[in-house]
């Protein structure tokens, strides 16, 4: 793996909350142009890792480099982040949210947003506050995918939504993935997502315990990633 090809480099990343260690000297490099799945159960450190990458959480020790820079204003301009919660302001309608993304992210593509809104069956005049959980998730994903970002970070994009919405979300992700961008997706719902990954990394108690090319792992272990996940965490 060549160094210059890594969009993300994480070295000895440690995060402690008081006595609790959420990330423990974690190392991970992510190659440009790949879809990587960060797989682990709740509480394994997935969201902590992602929040540090998104620039809203500070590490205790170690180093994170995204496209050559530590998380900050520049990385926020090239990272499109889908948090595991509704992050839009409650007073907004969808139009406001689109305006805001257009104002702040130069890589925002309104045409793409329109396509996605149609696909998700969302209207610009809907109020954010009145949307169901599944619809909020779809709206958030619409905004995040409408950017032509270098790095997409999706935290549990299909957790807690109904099967129909889940399929729509998966379709939207695969249909809108730009081949020269990189996507980092966390999930514990491996079965639904495993065919989307180039690479997978299993995270447990704040450490990466297994990582590699998804197809290679399938071949080596002669089992699906989902079964491998169950074997590791089951």
């Amino acid at each position: 793996m060549e160094l210059a090809n890594n969009i993300v480099e994480i070295n000895n990343l440690t995060k402690r909350y008081g006595n609790k260690t959420a990330l423990n000297k974690l190392n991970l490099n992510i190659q440009n142009g790949k879809i990587i799945g960060i797989l682990g159960p709740n509480g394994s450190g997935k969201t902590t890792l992602i929040k540090i990458l998104a620039g809203i959480l500070r590490q205790t020790k170690g180093e994170v480099i995204i496209d050559g820079y530590s998380p900050g204003i520049y990385t926020k301009s090239i990272v499109s982040y889908l948090p595991d919660r509704n992050f839009l302001y409650n007073w907004m309608n969808i139009q406001d949210a689109i305006d805001m993304f257009k104002d702040f992210y130069t890589d925002f593509d309104e045409g793409k947003a329109d396509e996605l809104l149609k696909f998700m069956k969302l209207d610009r005049d809907m109020k954010v506050d009145g949307l169901s959980k599944g619809m909020k998730e779809k709206l958030n994903l619409t905004l995040v995918l409408s950017r032509k970002a270098r790095l997409y970070i999706l935290d549990e994009p299909i957790a807690g939504v109904d099967p129909v919405a889940r399929d729509q979300i998966l379709d939207a992700i695969i249909n809108n993935y730009e081949e020269n961008s990189t996507m980092l997706i966390t999930t514990h719902l491996v079965r639904d997502m495993e065919k989307m990954f180039d690479e997978v990394a299993f995270i447990s108690e704040g450490e990466i315990i297994l990582e590699g090319n998804a197809d290679k792992l399938r071949e080596e272990k002669s089992m699906q990633i989902d079964d491998l996940y169950k074997e590791i965490f089951g």
Partner: peptide, 14 residues
């Protein structure tokens, strides 16, 4: 093909 099968395009390429 990637869209139809809902598979990562890099995998289809392979």
């Amino acid at each position: 093909t990637s869209k139809e099968l809902k598979v990562n395009p890099n995998t289809v390429q392979r």
